[in-house]
Computed example of a mutant assay.
Amino acid sequence: MNIAIIGVGAGIGLESVDQALEKGHNVTALSTKTDHIPDHPNLIKINGSATSPVDLKKAIEDSDAVLITVGTKNKKATTLFSDIAETLIKVSRELNFSSSVLIITGFGAGESKNYLSFFMRTVISLFLKDQYINKTEMEELITKSNLRWEIIRPGMLTNGNATSTYKVLSGLQKGMKVGKISRADVADFLVDEAENQRFIHQYVALSN
């Protein structure tokens, strides 16, 4: 299948590119910098921005699934995530786009903030508050759109190896525990979900 991966500079996006190619998919990768990604006969690299309608349209047209894996190290107030959502909705409308769109936010965005552990609530409050405010805005924009969306909320990300033994938690439940998960395992879920599309119009939490 044709998979577009948006935000492949590092982390989950780069892992997703590697895993999708290993499984034989055709991948279009969009990032502000793609030179570090090895060439591959099934890979199209686009240097551009996820907030550019021209770049995003080029990346997602003709794709069977889109993975939005953009992150930022900026701890200050940002509109990056909501800007991406607005651009995606605009472009999808122009393309009459009907394929699935899997979007990474984080456990702690939206209503999931009420289910955080004390430790994670403290970490987000101290270091990631502005990011999560904007990730919540992103979720609200996406879920009110006509996209075939899935919102994926991983727990605290690590650089560990893929285990394929992680938990997939659909819905929010009192007492639920969402802890650490490797970026490689998140990528494993994304590629598998692009293939099978079991959670359309659902919020999914991921944890080891």
Results as ranks from 00 to 15, higher is better:
residue 134 N to Y: 01
residue 67 L to M: 13
residue 101 V to R: 02
residue 110 G to Y: 01
residue 125 S to P: 01
residue 112 S to G: 07
residue 106 G to T: 11
residue 86 E to A: 15
residue 130 D to A: 10
residue 133 I to S: 00
residue 99 S to I: 09
residue 87 T to E: 04
residue 105 T to G: 01
residue 117 S to Y: 11
residue 89 I to N: 09
residue 83 D to K: 13
residue 85 A to K: 13
residue 77 A to Y: 11
residue 87 T to H: 09
residue 102 L to C: 05
residue 113 K to V: 13
residue 64 D to A: 12
residue 127 F to N: 06
residue 106 G to H: 04
residue 65 A to T: 12
residue 119 F to N: 02
residue 64 D to T: 08
residue 128 L to E: 06
residue 100 S to K: 10
residue 87 T to G: 02
residue 86 E to W: 06
residue 112 S to M: 08
residue 71 G to E: 02
residue 91 V to L: 11
residue 72 T to N: 07
residue 90 K to N: 13
residue 132 Y to E: 04
residue 51 T to N: 11
residue 82 S to N: 05
residue 86 E to P: 03
residue 64 D to E: 15
residue 60 I to A: 09
residue 72 T to K: 05
residue 64 D to L: 02
residue 123 V to K: 01
residue 92 S to M: 04
residue 70 V to I: 15
residue 82 S to F: 04
residue 97 F to E: 07
residue 123 V to T: 08
residue 57 K to M: 12
residue 56 L to M: 11
residue 105 T to S: 11
residue 72 T to W: 03
residue 119 F to G: 00
residue 82 S to G: 03
residue 77 A to E: 15
residue 129 K to C: 01
residue 60 I to Q: 11
residue 57 K to V: 00
residue 112 S to K: 09
residue 125 S to V: 00
residue 56 L to P: 02
residue 53 P to R: 09
residue 112 S to A: 09
residue 73 K to F: 14
residue 118 F to G: 02
residue 104 I to A: 02
residue 50 A to K: 10
residue 118 F to H: 08
residue 80 L to S: 03
residue 123 V to G: 00
residue 133 I to Y: 01
residue 52 S to P: 04
residue 125 S to W: 08
residue 98 S to Q: 15
residue 64 D to K: 13
residue 106 G to E: 06
residue 110 G to C: 10
residue 98 S to T: 15
residue 74 N to C: 05
residue 73 K to V: 08
residue 77 A to G: 11
residue 92 S to H: 06
residue 103 I to V: 15
residue 119 F to T: 09
